[in-house]
């Protein structure tokens, strides 16, 4: 900011006697460039890395997707959108899309809700705070494949821990590797196990930045814990909620490791009950079809879906957490709520 402060002394000089046209010195030019260009240079490393590792593969994938491109045979003929129509023509693709959305909803929705509640609890005055906070993050340290292998065993149909535990309560064993919904629940539980704690910590950090006066004011106004949570905490951490919902959406639509190791074949089950779109992509490119052109088409379709869902998500989250009114109206709303309570 201070760099941009205007060159005040110059103006003083100009107001004096008339002078020949001013020649701008090189150092002055340099400092002007410094002001204009430097900020972009400072942030450029990210964008350069992004261009190499993000943008280039993205564009190259688009290029591959319009060619006949076998894994080993390499580039073939230009075939336009044939790969896309091939993919849309495969029932497996649609099944994978169904599975992806189902697993995404079963994981992301409970995950964000539980994380925000957990964060609110951790935000209270607890003994051994650090212990609890580190505790929720612990699952995140475990590699996803390890989680997958362990949960795969726990959810084994005949010999699994989960089914034995259900048996204690007289519940029939669930066929985790056969039923569509059961397998989705099992995989979603792995995802939730790993990511809930991570999101909790992000929420917690945001909550701690909420000014304590707001809570004091709320308490004076007679708001209980629950009311404080919904009327102070949630609106205050709006930006963080949007961030978490977005990242978990993107992650949720790209689940790969967990379904991949859920059974030994790694192809999403005998009838593709839990084959997600990323798993389908892998199967197309490196599995049975070994067709990189089609795999690239799937990647682009998935990319567009993720962007669309991300935008929808953003719009929805934005609406929910602002609750219609503008920002200055919080106090008015409280007042309105009070008066409506009084009149009721």
């Amino acid at each position: 900011m201070s760099v941009q402060s205007p060159p005040a002394p110059e103006r003083v000089a100009q107001s004096g006697a008339p002078r020949p046209p001013r020649r701008v010195g090189f150092s002055q030019k340099l400092s002007r460039w410094d002001v204009k260009v430097s900020p972009y240079l400072y942030i450029s490393p990210f964008f350069i890395v992004f261009a190499i590792t993000g943008l280039f593969p993205l564009i190259y994938t688009a290029y591959v997707s319009v060619y006949d491109w076998a894994l080993l045979g390499g580039q073939g003929e230009f075939i336009g959108f044939q790969n896309y129509t091939d993919v849309f023509g495969q029932p497996m693709f649609w099944r994978s899309l169904r599975n992806t959305f189902s697993i995404f909803l079963l994981s992301s929705v409970p995950q964000v809700l539980v994380a925000i509640v957990l964060a609110a609890l951790l935000d209270q005055n607890l003994r051994a705070k650090t212990f609890w906070r580190m505790g929720v993050l612990l699952p995140y340290v475990v590699a996803p494949v390890a989680v997958g292998l362990i949960f795969g065993r726990m959810f084994a149909d005949q010999s699994g821990l989960v089914n034995s535990a259900l048996g204690v309560f007289g519940i029939d064993p669930v066929r985790w590797h056969v039923d569509v919904l059961a397998s989705h629940v099992a995989i979603a539980s792995m995802v939730n196990f790993r990511w809930t704690g991570y999101n909790t910590l992000i929420f917690l950090a945001a909550m701690q930045a909420v000014p304590r006066e707001l809570y004091e004011a709320a308490i004076i106004d007679g708001a209980g814990r629950v009311r404080q949570f919904f009327s102070v905490t949630v609106p205050q951490i709006r930006a963080t909620i949007i961030f978490v919902v977005l990242t978990s959406t993107i992650g949720g639509l790209q689940i790969f490791d967990e379904p991949r190791v859920f059974d030994p074949a790694g192809r999403g089950g005998g009838s593709q009950q839990w084959m997600t779109t990323t798993l389908y992509l892998y199967d197309v490119g490196w599995g049975t079809q070994r067709d990189l052109g089609r795999a690239a088409a799937v990647a682009w379709i998935l990319f567009i879906i993720v962007v669309l869902i991300g935008l929808v998500n953003f719009a929805v989250t934005n609406r929910i957490s602002t609750s219609g009114g503008g920002q200055p109206s919080r106090r008015q709303r409280r007042a309105a709520a009070r008066s409506s309570r009084r009149s009721a």
Binding site: F50, T53, G54, L246, I250, G251, F303, V307, F314
Partner: peptide, 8 residues
């Protein structure tokens, strides 16, 4: 969104 999804 695009950049995050790419990184992810």
């Amino acid at each position: 969104v695009a950049s995050i999804s790419l990184l992810a």
